[in-house]
């Protein structure tokens, strides 16, 4: 597998480097609200203008699909969750490019939410209930609640009556708001984002637990993308805050900007993964697509 990927990398890279016409492909996941196509058009145009090359956003349902695209070289950059980042980082598949700054810091949380009218007050109240996870590769939407259960020495299958993945933080909020699930775990950034643009949905949910802070879902580049493109992308993103249209785009994303941070930003997630694996090494084989 690795050989295959390496081969692909060597094979694709020269072509991409050689041709300015080859678009830069940017993978997006559920860490950001991807429904607003007009915004994505504006952002890609902005990036194109700054970098001088065509930028295409590529969307997939799950993190895993995006990670596969990244591994196969079909995309060059991706905005992924901290959990797949640490997994892939260990395999030297990607590099940390830049980290969004949200409310002044590169951190976010996991929210455990329930329906606003439900009697549940703490996470333990959800035992024997139905629970919605966001994505099996999501830190806030899966790893964190998994760690909470693992701490109690249980598995999700035993702890909850029913669990399911929505593969999307926004849909987890919807699942809880519409009482398909009694509880759910979501990315705080997404929840707050929805609270601004679709408050009628978040109003139907109540946060019963807020996790410690984790490193914000970062933007990564595939190992093998030429250094020029990588640095150009990093610079472009981090300088968005300095011009008007870049600022407008950041406002739309409800972000303060992008900044370079050390890989240690994600050590809390690594610790979480470690804790979960210790209790339940089988968690990583949860069935997904």
């Amino acid at each position: 597998m690795r050989l295959c990927i390496l081969f692909l990398l060597f094979w694709i890279t020269p072509i991409q480097a050689a041709s300015a016409d080859t678009p830069i492909r940017f993978g997006l996941t559920a860490v950001v609200i991807t429904e607003n196509l007009r915004f994505l058009d504006q952002w890609s145009q902005y990036l194109e203008h700054k970098i001088g090359r065509k930028v295409e956003f590529v969307q997939r349902r799950s993190y895993r699909e995006v990670m596969d695209l990244l591994a196969s070289g079909a995309i060059d950059f991706a905005w992924i969750c901290g959990y797949p980042y640490i997994q892939a980082k260990d395999l030297d598949l990607l590099q940390l490019l830049t980290v969004p700054i949200y409310r002044g810091s590169p951190h976010y949380h996991s929210y455990i939410i329930v329906h606003e009218s439900s009697p549940y007050k703490r996470f333990s109240d959800l035992k024997g209930r139905s629970f919605a996870f966001s994505d099996p590769d999501s830190n806030s939407g899966f790893l964190y609640p998994l760690a909470l259960i693992a701490k109690r020495g249980e598995t999700p299958e035993n702890y909850f009556r029913q669990t399911f993945f929505t593969f999307n933080h926004a849909e987890t909020v919807q699942a809880v708001a519409e009482q398909v699930a009694d509880g759910g775990a979501v990315d705080s950034y997404i929840w707050e984002y929805i609270a601004v643009f679709r408050p009628q949905m978040t109003e139907k949910t109540r946060i019963i637990k807020k996790s410690p802070s984790f490193g914000f879902p970062p933007i990564v580049n595939r190992v093998g993308v030429d250094a020029g493109t990588v640095s150009q992308m990093r610079r472009t993103l981090e300088e968005m805050v300095d011009d008007v249209s870049g600022k407008q785009l950041l406002d739309s994303l409800k972000l303060d900007g992008f900044g370079s941070y050390a890989d240690s930003l994600f050590n809390e997630i690594r610790a979480l993964e470690h804790a979960v694996q210790k209790t339940n090494p089988r968690h990583s084989v949860v069935k997904t697509d």
């Binding site: 139905s130 919605a132 029913q162 399911f164 593969f167 849909e171 699942a175 519409e178 398909v180 069935k287």
Partner: peptide, 13 residues
């Protein structure tokens, strides 16, 4: 078979 309750729900919805 996948216990994908969310997809089932969305299909109804």
């Amino acid at each position: 078979l996948r216990k994908d309750y969310w997809s089932l729900y969305l299909s109804l919805k």
